[in-house]
């Protein structure tokens, strides 16, 4: 995770478009300027960043389901629960499942596990549109390469 750059996913462990599921891994950094403010003397991963990590995990699943032709944007967060604190240095496993793919929108169920237990979960809604410009698409392709998204496999069907 590079919290300051909103890069919250480190690796895609498994993605199954047919089963509509994805599992990713994310390592919470030991140090970050975020922890200097949240909170002084008691560093914790902010809940909003955990929600963002769940959104990004879902986003990669949606990008795969949409053949890397459209970009999902977070539109609603429901039933988000932060069940325990997440501290610097923890290793997270995040699993998302596509709940529904509608016309121009989608919903996912997603959960974060740490230490073998579910620590956060939410139901998320996304709107998705064709990539708005080449720069964003190029950035997403570079990120895909970095985190092990099976871009080539998708290109070759």
């Amino acid at each position: 995770m590079r919290l300051e750059y909103f890069q919250l996913i480190d690796r895609i462990a498994e993605i199954d478009v047919d089963a509509r599921t994805v599992t990713v891994e994310a390592d919470v950094p030991s140090e970050s300027t975020i922890f200097e403010g949240h909170f002084p003397g008691y560093p914790l991963m902010p809940g909003v960043l955990l929600i963002e990590a769940m959104a990004q995990t879902s986003g990669w699943l949606l990008i795969a389901a949409l053949n890397f032709e459209r970009m999902p944007f977070l539109a609603a967060v429901k039933e988000a629960k932060m069940r325990r604190f997440i501290s610097p240095g923890e290793k997270l496993t995040i699993r998302a499942r596509l709940l529904h793919e509608g016309s121009g929108y989608a919903m996912t169920d997603v959960a974060i596990e740490a230490g073998g237990k579910t620590t956060c979960n939410a139901t998320l809604t996304f709107s998705h549109v064709p990539f708005p410009n080449a720069e964003l698409r190029s950035h997403m392709e570079a990120m895909a390469q970095k985190i092990g998204f099976p871009l080539e496999a998708m290109r070759h069907g």
Binding site: A75, A76, H100, G102, Y105, M107, T125, S127
Partner: peptide, 12 residues
């Protein structure tokens, strides 16, 4: 945005 929830329920 609220209509997405309605669309979801109608789709289902």
């Amino acid at each position: 945005l609220d209509f997405l929830d309605i669309a979801f329920a109608i789709d289902k």
